[in-house]
Design a binder for these strands. Structure first.
Length: 356
DNA sequence: AACAAGAGCAACCGCACCCTA
DNA sequence: GTAGGGTGCGGTTGCTCTTGT
């Protein structure tokens, strides 16, 4: 059964709002408020408009403290960082930018920011040949890497040197770090994001998902024994792989999240197009690319980056900077791995990402 | 000057979720 | 438990303005 229309379509005005209509709406809401009912508002205010149209006009244009005009560089960075991590959740992004509306940000992204970044892509020989990605989430990770590492000139492998700070993140996470240049600031940034969307309950978006999601979108860790990936929220207890093995002797600790769990998140609308399994592989049948944080199995026997995960349901927010440094040094000292660089093989990613 | 193409942006549409009866 | 109304969100459309030829 179809829905009843919210208003009489034949008798409502559409198209641009006149100054008189704006004045009527503003005057009414200033005096009466919305009364929590947009549908009946236009009639009460003497407007021949759909309630939804009134709401949109108010929220996007007439309400106080709306900021119009150019976006600042800081706003650009915030938008890019959040887009890289959560995708096109414009309302959440807008919540981080006082005075900006989701519609504003969406338009800005689609018309300017995206092109600005694409321009950077075209100017960067290392990835100018990159296929056009049909889904924004793929673009997001690509952009974030570009924002961070556009000085990289290597044609096939970008090297992410984090030696100045001694901690390591996926590029998407570092896109936030470039804004704040400090892990604590990163924590603060995510705290703010989480509190704004979580309503005091279970956060809608776990930081680990931001990072993993971004990695899934566009990155593969290079097959380089000296590279190290740090993962938070590792569910080590469920470490397993398709062939039943879990090779901790290779200093690889599986994240091991079950696909179904992430499926549930997706159903909740919290993760889009993110799938995880215990093994890096492509699900040919469902055309989905899956990522794992590394378990030894027949598909990746020679895939031995040092992958460290921490604690069930832990996030970076649960750790202080010093503790993270300590964890890194204690782990790396036992594995004799060099932790100074992050290596991502973008060409390999190109081959592996499946579009859907 | 006239026209076409592109860019920018306000507004619309439809879907999904939430709440209530 | 469920149907229906209200609301919010993201994708898309189409109008207007600008730029290029």
């Amino acid at each position: 059964m179809g829905r009843a229309p919210c208003c009489d379509k034949a008798n409502v005005k559409k198209g641009p709002w006149s100054p008189e209509e704006d004045a009527k709406l503003k005057e009414y809401i200033d005096k009466q408020g919305t009364g929590g009912n947009w549908i009946s508002l236009p009639q009460k205010a003497g407007l021949k408009r759909c309630g939804k149209s009134c709401r949109l006009r108010w929220l996007n244009y007439l309400r106080p403290n709306i900021k119009h005009g150019e976006f600042s560089d800081d706003e650009d960075r915030i938008i890019c960082g959040l887009f890289a991590n959560i995708g096109s959740r414009w309302s959440i992004i807008a919540a981080q930018l006082p005075g900006r509306t989701d519609n504003d940000i969406k338009n800005y992204w689609n018309t300017k920011l995206k092109k600005k970044l694409m321009g950077m892509v075209n100017n960067n020989s290392s990835i100018s040949h990159q296929r056009k990605l049909p889904h924004q989430h793929h673009q997001a990770a690509s952009f974030s890497s570009l924002l961070l590492h556009q000085t990289s000139t290597s044609p096939s492998t970008a090297s992410y040197n984090c030696s100045s700070t001694n901690y390591y993140y996926t590029p998407a996470a570092r896109s936030v770090l470039t804004t704040n240049n400090d892990l604590l600031e990163l924590n603060s940034s995510f705290s703010s994001l989480l509190s704004s969307v979580g309503g005091g309950g279970v956060p809608i978006l776990q930081p680990q998902e931001c990072f993993l999601g971004s990695m899934q979108n566009n990155y593969q860790v290079n097959k380089d024994s000296s590279s190290t990936v740090l993962m938070f929220g590792g569910d080590q207890a469920s470490c397993s792989s398709s062939d039943g093995s879990c090779n901790n002797n290779n200093q690889i600790v599986s994240h091991g999240k079950e696909l179904d769990q992430y499926h549930d998140y997706r159903q909740m609308g919290n993760l889009q197009n993110c799938f995880y399994s215990n093994n890096n592989r492509v699900d040919e049948e469902n055309q989905k690319f899956m990522i794992s944080t590394g378990c030894s199995d027949h598909q990746q026997q020679d895939y031995k980056p040092n992958i460290i995960t921490w604690g069930d349901d832990q996030t970076p927010l649960d750790y202080g900077l010093e503790e993270i440094k300590q964890l890194i040094s204690s782990t790396t000292s036992t594995t004799s791995n060099n932790c100074n660089n992050f290596l991502f093989d973008e060409n390999k990613t190109e081959e592996k990402v499946m579009y859907y």
